[in-house]
Amino acid sequence: MSLNLGILLAFTCAIATQLGFLYKHKGANEAPTVDVRHPFRTAKQLYSCKWFAIGMAVATGAWIFHVAALAYAPLSVVQAVLSTGVVILAVMAERIFGFQVARRQWVGVAMTALGLMLLVITLPAVHGAHSGYSLVGMILFEGAMLVIGALLIGGKHLGMPDHHHGVMLGAAAGVLFGVSDIAIKGLTGADGIAGVVTSPWLAVTVGASVIAFYASARGLQDGEAVPVIAATSTAANVSCILGGIVVFGDPMPSDTVGICVQAFAFVLVVAAALVTPPPVRAAAVNAAH
């Protein structure tokens, strides 16, 4: 019963997350350019845009459903359900928000969804909430993800192409959301409210979420909705799946076929990241600002 409830909560989170991102994209492009040197002014400007504020309200609801899902189901199961979000994103973007989702983007979305689904269905089943974790694994994994997020954020200054900046920021936000989610999963096993408040992972959750907020908002300004949001969702999903294995000891496939399928799944996800972004239109949007 608890596992089914966790799956239902995760599916609700998947829908709300993509809806919130689309509203935030609409609002972010009506706001002045995000400037992390002035975080409070930037946050005020973003929240002054009605659509961004609505998006954040929806995203907050999605976050609550996500935390609840993590309390009832293993991390790998939650991510399996959340991986459907990239398909939900494309459908809502085209049908509800009127975005023109090009064939190239649909191909990228399909490859991402297939890769994520192959990744999660090859993970052996686990039972219970599976909240116990390795402290060393948590520290090393979270530290490595923070470094990757920082590199993606600084990609423009490291010589990466400008027209990929929005997607890189979206991916950085996803990695940092993954850092936050892994820390939250650890907190679900804490000993009551006192254990949560005194845990260092609470600070990691808050810090990663704040940085991800600004990276995501700027990414939504610099890139198109579908590729940027898909990059965010995919990076968060992959980070959490890896975190489930490294930190919480979720089992990996023990047979050669399962390992090969997982390797193919990762290749699909990476290839999708190269297929999805439309550089010309993204650059045009960026120049218009």
Rank of each mutant, 00 (worst) to 15 (best):
G243R: 00
A235K: 03
A212P: 07
Y214M: 11
R218G: 12
A217G: 03
A236C: 15
S233V: 14
E224C: 13
T232V: 06
A230K: 05
S233G: 06
G244L: 04
A225Q: 04
E224D: 10
A230M: 07
L220C: 07
V226H: 02
N237H: 11
P227V: 05
A230T: 08
C240Q: 13
V238F: 11
S233H: 06
V226S: 10
S239Q: 10
D222S: 10
L242I: 13
F213G: 14
R218D: 15
G223W: 03
A217D: 05
G244N: 02
A225I: 09
D222C: 13
I211L: 15
C240H: 04
G244K: 00
Q221K: 11
L220M: 09
L242A: 08
L220T: 08
T234E: 00
A231T: 00
Y214E: 12
C240G: 02
A230H: 06
G219H: 07
A231Q: 00
L220R: 08
I211F: 15
T234K: 01
I211N: 10
G223K: 12
E224V: 14
V228A: 03
V228W: 10
A231E: 00
P227L: 02
I229D: 03
A225L: 06
A225N: 05
G223A: 07
T232Y: 02
R218N: 15
G244R: 00
G244D: 05
V228Q: 06
I211A: 14
V226L: 05
P227S: 02
S233L: 07
I211W: 14
V226C: 07
V226T: 09
G223V: 04
A230R: 09
G243I: 02
A212S: 14
A215R: 06
I211H: 12
D222F: 14
V238A: 02
F213V: 11
A212I: 12
S233M: 08
A236S: 10
V228H: 04
V228N: 06
L242E: 11
E224M: 12
A235T: 03
D222Y: 15
I241Q: 04
S216R: 13
T234S: 05
F213I: 09
I211E: 13
L242D: 15
I229Y: 02
S233R: 08
A236D: 08
D222R: 15
P227M: 05
C240F: 00
A225M: 07
